[in-house]
Design a protein around this nucleic acid. Sequence first.
DNA 1: AGCTGTGAATGACTTCACAGCA
DNA 2: TGCTGTGAAGTCATTCACAGCT
Lengths: 230, 230
Amino acid sequence: MTDSGARRAVPDAAVARLPVYHRCLLELEARGRDTVSSEQLAELAGVNAAKVRKDLSHFGSYGTRGVGYSVPQLILDLRRELGLTHNWRCVIVGAGNLGSALAAFGGFRERGFEVVGVVDVDPERVGRRVGGLRVGHEDELGGIVAEHDVAIGVVAVPPSAAQEAADRLVACGVRSILNFAPTVLDVPDEVQVRNVDLAVELQILAFHEGRRSDAVVGSVPPGVGESASA
Amino acid sequence: MTDSGARRAVPDAAVARLPVYHRCLLELEARGRDTVSSEQLAELAGVNAAKVRKDLSHFGSYGTRGVGYSVPQLILDLRRELGLTHNWRCVIVGAGNLGSALAAFGGFRERGFEVVGVVDVDPERVGRRVGGLRVGHEDELGGIVAEHDVAIGVVAVPPSAAQEAADRLVACGVRSILNFAPTVLDVPDEVQVRNVDLAVELQILAFHEGRRSDAVVGSVPPGVGESASA
DNA sequence: AGCTGTGAATGACTTCACAGCA
DNA sequence: TGCTGTGAAGTCATTCACAGCT
């Protein structure tokens, strides 16, 4: 697992933070800021300054000592590093509530992603429009992927149908999957999967919530106050 | 950061996996399985066996050597550990596409969570029904939280309104927030926040996707094949 | 004087490997 | 024999602390 081919450059934990920095920088740019220090960026991103500097150093980003980082330059560097120099095409499998919400979500386009298709097995849903797209039948998946050169598939179907959805995506040549179904997908090694299980997120919150002030009477254990960027 | 009060028991990384084990065990139980080995559970959860054993050992779970773990017993242990012995009440702020999808999502109830309210500022949306609930006005938030003893707030509003939504939740006494807005929320230390930024997930996929086979001609770098349970 | 970039120190998590119980 | 529970080793990530540029 992990990588292997080329040099390991950026640690996974850092990769997971780069998009957050990117987002904060876009905000700074919108406010007309031209430079930013690691300390300020850290504040915005909710991490500490040393981490910001280390993360950025992984891909040879060059700030200016005594000054900070150039906001536009750093945005470009991050875009390059994150592969956002072109738009990534995505297809959503499942046009239920979640799939529809994702398709209609405007935020993707601005951040480098374009939803080019939504499909579903249910004939009831085929033909509807969501987020400016017509819901296609699942059989059209191959055509959509080929036509738009889709790189990322989003699985937004019930758990019982998730493995099949993933299999179809893989068969069509998609090698990156974002899975919202509460199931571990079985895919070939060369396919990467990221899971977002909403109930898992809630359960993690509940775990910490359940550990507050328990037992220990009269104490005021300051809880957690952590922030997790899944 | 992190904890402080009581004894640190279970490492964060392990906590994040417990819900996944719990989910897999429910599946096993539904299939009538009575015992499971660490190896089998690991397979289902997409991790390795040593990790499963170590994770479970953190809260003194007792399996039987030579046999494995009792499925029903382990489910109970996990439920207790995750604080799922009672249902957690949640309230959703924001009745847009995502908020509505979350409210309508049936999967929560089965996993220990109950959505008891949905609110929005937009008068246009107030009064609509989503997932069996009437959308309330944001002013009703305090009443809903108090009445149902809500523990978890879900922020599903546009980024520009997210901080205000969080402030309101905190003011109402909610101390756990699941934030879907692409913004870092500023909250008091005793409030825990988990962020789910869908575009970030896509960007992480894109990062790895962009690193495939690059440059190195003719090589067949086996990519990533990782699985992240955010 | 201010802030980056980075080796070195610390800490967290994972994996190994095996003793020991059923 | 089979599988758990766990010290010990190994890997990865975070934080410190400071040299060095502007």
